[in-house]
């Protein structure tokens, strides 16, 4: 006998809870996305339209033009700050800052965790209190020091003072402390000295942590505004984030502000951090949640 049972699709009752949740989420993401979309669309409409009608939600034909201007045409007086130049400077700042910070932080944490230094705990807490003193708080003395050292308008001047803070040191310290003592001892018996242990064992074990730190630090460095504004006065040292401001500023007055060009730079400025986060995100989650010790 053939099976006669009817397969009856159960009538799904409407799940109001889920609808409510999704409505909130959709509204929330629209709220976040619309300004972004507006920035992108603004790069395609003529500047005059924006002056006349305000921000536009339409697609115009000016993208190529604006892209050309933003990336390759210099603004300002010296003609040195093209978009390309600023992009390059931003990368130097973001990568230099992230790598410098990770290197310094790992070495500091290594010294604090693994060596019986006389004042290791004190040293750690001194480093830790710098968390309460971000660059903005100590900006005048920092400027003074950098200026005295003749590092205004240099990459060193841009990067080094930013590196001096404790966040990454703190994370690496916690991480190193969770590395089993036995592993350290096994390496000692295996004849690995302090440098070998650091390079052969600790750095590879920390790689997810390093990736997580890299993301955070790269984005942080990339987004710096105040410090580069103070330390770079020559236009060929401008970073994207500060350069965008410069464009709308210099062109105020009788000319039409170059909204398209500025917004295009803004879009370009957004892309690398997004790319870094996407590229490293699986490492990022791993680094902050698990480790294969």
């Amino acid at each position: 006998m053939a099976d006669q049972t009817h397969v009856q699709t159960p009538r799904r009752s409407i799940n109001w809870g889920a609808i409510g949740d999704h409505t909130v989420l959709i509204l929330g993401s629209l709220f976040m996305l619309v300004p972004l979309i507006m920035v992108v669309l603004t790069t395609t409409v003529p500047d005059v339209d924006i002056i006349k009608y305000g921000p536009q939600l339409k697609i115009g034909d000016q993208f190529d033009d604006n892209f050309e201007k933003a990336m390759f045409e210099a603004s300002g007086f010296s003609g040195a700050n093209t978009g390309m130049r600023m992009l390059f400077n931003s990368f130097v700042l973001g990568i230099g800052f992230a790598l410098g910070k990770i290197l310094i932080a790992m070495m500091a944490a290594y010294a604090i965790v693994y060596f019986r230094l006389r004042f290791a705990t004190l040293a750690f807490w001194v480093i830790f209190t710098t968390l309460l003193l971000p660059l903005e708080v100590r900006i005048l003395p920092s400027y003074e020091v950098v200026q005295q050292l003749g590092m205004l308008n240099t990459y060193q001047g841009l990067i080094i003072p930013l590196i001096a803070s404790a966040t990454a040191t703190f994370f690496f310290r916690q991480f190193f402390r969770s590395v089993p003592e036995e592993l350290v001892e096994a390496a000692r018996i295996d004849g690995a000295g302090p440098v070998k242990f650091f390079i052969d064992i600790l750095v590879p074990l920390s790689k997810t942590m390093i990736a997580a730190m890299f993301i955070i630090m790269f984005v942080f460095g990339w987004n710096q505004y105040l410090w580069p504004t103070m330390i770079t006065t020559e236009e060929d040292m401008y970073t994207l984030v500060r350069g965008i401001k410069q464009i709308t500023q210099t062109l105020e007055g009788t000319n039409v502000p170059e909204f398209g060009r500025a917004n295009l730079l803004a879009v370009i400025a957004i892309l690398p951090p997004v790319a870094v986060v996407i590229f490293f995100q699986s490492w990022f989650v791993k680094g902050l949640t698990e480790s294969d010790k």
């Binding site: 036995e182 592993l183 001892e185 096994a186 390496a187 000692r188 018996i189 004849g191 074990l205 294969d292």
Partner: peptide, 20 residues
């Protein structure tokens, strides 16, 4: 004498293998 120079080898409770 440093552990590395004592000509010894040790097996640990949790094996202490290098995970990477």
């Amino acid at each position: 004498v440093d552990p590395a120079d004592r000509d010894i080898a040790m097996v640990f409770q949790n094996y202490a293998l290098y995970p990477h």
